[in-house]
Design a protein around this nucleic acid. Structure first.
Length: 428
RNA sequence: GGGUCGGUGCCCGAGUGGUUAAUGGGGGCGGACUGUAAAUCCGCUGGCUCUGCCUACGUUGGUUCAAAUCCAACCCGGCCCA
């Protein structure tokens, strides 16, 4: 199995001992790859996404990276937008029934997902290759799920049993702990599996928590007379806290479109025991070639990952600036645009910019934090300032009611919240 | 449908008539410290352009000078029985 395929794999099935060397394309993924090559037919690699949020983060990106690797090897990525199933809500990993989303909200999310994945961008910089012909198929599962009639639904339901459903860990836990399971939630794995039938997937990618659903796809493909897909599972990326999975609702994410400095600052604080995991799953670097020293290795990781989403120069700048920040009191924010040295001016580019015109003047300090979205409420913003966590150009703000009378007072300055969040004010 | 128990702030969980956004824990955020982090210590942890004003203990109504706490109906959930 080639390295691009095996890197970071958590699970591959079927892959029994005897199947490893098997030449049966139903038992061995390697054999199916060879078969595909011989027939000149690209494999169809399915990856389903639930457009339930609006931001893609590094945790999602490990699946897309693997999908991209398949694309680069000449196969077809079949990206399924679960616009229909998102409205049921995937019960996986949930301890309660998920709220159902409106069709309009789902569609809006789907659009932003595609853009974040690289729609309309140069494949060199994008996560997925949207441009090379035959490498990508984007499908929405409403395409076939909306028109299912009751007899078809009953047929689907008939392929599985309550016992099988309760074998799924999430359902078992909820059932065992007396948490409600709505009947329609049982439909979710069946519908996801039916997607595999519709797109005739050879391989389905997913996180390890998707094993049940991917296996369901195999069952259904068999039921409908197709060759079952392979399940290729990747680890769930632990979040910045090092404990729980990376998830927006837990606030331990790094978003794909975050500014270099934010991204780097977050990544270099990842717990030591996670550094190699991040390197394996989010970069192509050879781990053996990296420094042994934990701090150096951590910085190399943060640099490399930042460089996958930005240019290498931007990542380097972020690194040097992050160094200045943590190295203590002498934070060398440059005050006022006229005193920039050429080197520092480029460094400051790594901070996310916000237009001065986004607020009305005069503006009080706490309101500014809220208006910029750095704090979720004005009360929280007050607390942050009172707690000494807010700096402007390296100078601690002490009065939440401090007023800024006009944009000129803020022009070019950098607002800092805590150690990881920065915003630079720009004109216009 | 019947019986029964229960619904408190991000989560868990105290609180059974009375100054108070409501004990405690977890988590989170900020500060100090450190190789960043972790550990430890300290602070914060409903909202509001906030010297004050608003919402809050499933919902609605009621009793009372006063309710998360009492009453009623309703909604939702667990378990047992059908």
């Amino acid at each position: 199995m080639p390295p691009w395929l095996s890197r970071g794999l958590a699970d591959l099935f079927p892959a029994s001992q005897e199947a490893i060397g098997s030449i049966d394309p139903c038992q061995s993924l390697g054999a199916r790859l060879i078969e595909a090559g011989r027939q000149g037919r690209p494999l169809r690699i399915k990856l389903g996404i639930d457009p339930t949020g609006s931001d893609i983060h590094l945790g999602h990106s490990i699946l897309f990276r693997k999908l991209r690797a398949f694309q680069d090897a000449g196969h077809t990525a079949v990206l399924i937008i679960g616009d229909f199933t998102a409205r049921i809500g995937d019960p996986t990993g949930k301890s309660a029934t998920r709220v159902q989303l409106s069709a309009a909200a789902v569609e809006a999310n789907a659009e932003t997902y595609l853009v974040q994945l690289g729609l309309g961008q140069d494949p060199e910089r994008a996560l997925l290759d949207f441009t090379t012909p035959g490498r990508l198929e984007v499908r929405r599962n409403s395409e076939w799920l909306t028109s299912l009639d009751l007899p078809q639904v009953i047929e689907l339901l008939g392929t599985s049993t309550v016992g099988q459903m309760l074998a799924k860990e999430d359902f078992a836990n909820r059932y065992g702990s007396g948490t409600a399971i709505a009947l329609h939630e049982f439909l979710y794995p069946l519908l996801q599996g039916y997607d595999s039938v519709q797109v005739q997937a050879d391989v389905e990618l997913g996180g390890t928590d998707q094993k049940f659903n991917v296996a369901m796809g195999r069952d259904l493909q068999r039921h409908f007379g197709q060759r079952p897909q392979f399940g290729l599972l990747l680890p769930i990326l632990p979040g910045l806290d090092g404990v729980q999975k990376m998830s927006k609702s837990l606030g331990n994410t790094v978003g794909l479109k975050e500014a270099p400095l934010d991204m780097y600052s977050k990544l270099e604080k990842v717990p030591d025991n996670l550094v190699d995991t991040y390197l394996t799953l989010l970069t192509d670097l050879d781990l053996a070639a990296l420094p042994e020293n934990p701090r150096e290795r951590q910085k190399a990781m943060a640099l490399a990952i930042t460089a996958t989403r930005h240019t290498f120069e931007e990542a380097l700048n972020a690194q040097s600036q992050a160094g200045m920040i943590v190295s203590g009191g002498g934070v060398t924010w440059v005050t006022g645009s006229t005193t920039f040295t050429p080197g520092l001016a480029s460094v400051i580019d790594t901070v996310q910019s916000v237009p001065l015109s986004s607020v009305e003047y005069p503006v009080k300090a706490f309101f500014l934090l809220k208006a910029l979205g750095l704090c979720t409420s004005s009360s929280e913003a007050r607390r942050q300032i009172q707690g000494g966590g807010v700096k402007l150009d390296g100078e601690k703000l002490t009065d939440a009611n401090q007023e800024f009378l006009n944009p000129a007072e803020l022009q070019g300055k950098v607002l800092q919240l805590g150690k990881k969040t920065f915003r630079r004010f720009v004109g216009g």
